[in-house]
Nucleic acid binder design. Structure first.
Ligand SMILES: [Mn+2]
Ligand SMILES: [Mn+2]
Ligand SMILES: [Zn+2]
Ligand SMILES: [Zn+2]
Lengths: 138, 138
DNA sequence: AAATTAATGCACTTCCGTTGCATACTTCAA
DNA sequence: TTGAAGTATGCAACGGAAGTGCATTAATTT
């Protein structure tokens, strides 16, 4: 049911070899992943293919894009029943300035924000920078 | 008291011609400004000089850097008594996806965020994307 | 099998931030 | 006032990352 292929097909993405490998990689990684991360992980890989793979994953709701303020776009798999595209269902992202990892804090839901009259909020991005628990121990 | 030169000298920045011009420009603009914005405004200008001018302004606490998620770094003058460098005194930024302007919502202070044990928050970035009031009228 | 569509790989471009280095301008002390 | 040291500027170039064009290959459909 929840095997790799099904994740793809359930989201209308054809399960090609590369897509399965990238998905596998994203599943194993607990933190957010950059295009270069994926590229480096595979010995023989083409940057463009991975780029388009990640892009497809985002478009089809398999993963979401994260702007953690480092200037490097990160990607992370969506949870089940995630509504990344739909407003106000987004979570906080934490970026550790020590180990440089970015993680999804999915249990921290972004609170509703009231703006001045006339402003319409469509999307909210909340990033906290600091030291993660792992780095904190050392 | 609050003329251009004093703003610079009060922050230990020597008031050179270019710096005064850039400061003037930032003062007149109500929205956040990119390096390219400043560059284009002046007929004859050097990108590097402006880059370093803006960098100096940030370092000396005259302006703050904004990452609005567009991938283009923006700058805006700090308010009086702004503690941008010191944690948790930051405000929300609004980016209009229609006119592409980013503004400081200085009266919206970012609330304190409680993270899991072990995590230390040093900096918080909150960006709301949507439609601004001006664009909303049209 | 032929034709159509989708995915991949390679080369190349663009954009932005950033740095190196040579020149010009200030400041200050001898 | 002259020279030296420090600071600011201008030009050129680099590097990383996102993104595009296009030819090739693989998968689907008829
Ligand atoms: Mn996330
Ligand atoms: Mn601001
Ligand atoms: Zn860490
Ligand atoms: Zn607008």
């Amino acid at each position: 049911m929840l095997n790799l292929e099904n994740i793809l097909t359930n989201n209308n993405v054809k399960p090609t070899a590369m897509r399965l490998l990238v998905l596998q990689f994203l599943l194993n990684k607990k933190s957010a992943t950059s295009l270069t991360d994926v590229e480096n992980y595979f010995d023989k890989s083409d940057r463009t293919t991975i780029y388009r793979t990640l892009k497809t994953f985002v478009e089809k709701g398999i993963s979401h894009k994260i702007d953690d303020g480092t200037g490097i776009t990160k990607y992370a798999l969506c949870e089940e029943n995630c509504h990344c595209e739909i407003d106000n269902d987004l979570h906080l992202h934490f970026h550790c300035t020590n180990c440089n990892e970015t993680i999804c804090v999915t249990d921290y839901k972004i609170p509703k924000i009231t703006l001045s009259r006339g402003y319409i909020a469509e999307n909210i991005n909340l990033v906290v920078k600091g030291i993660c628990d792992t780095c904190n121990k050392n």
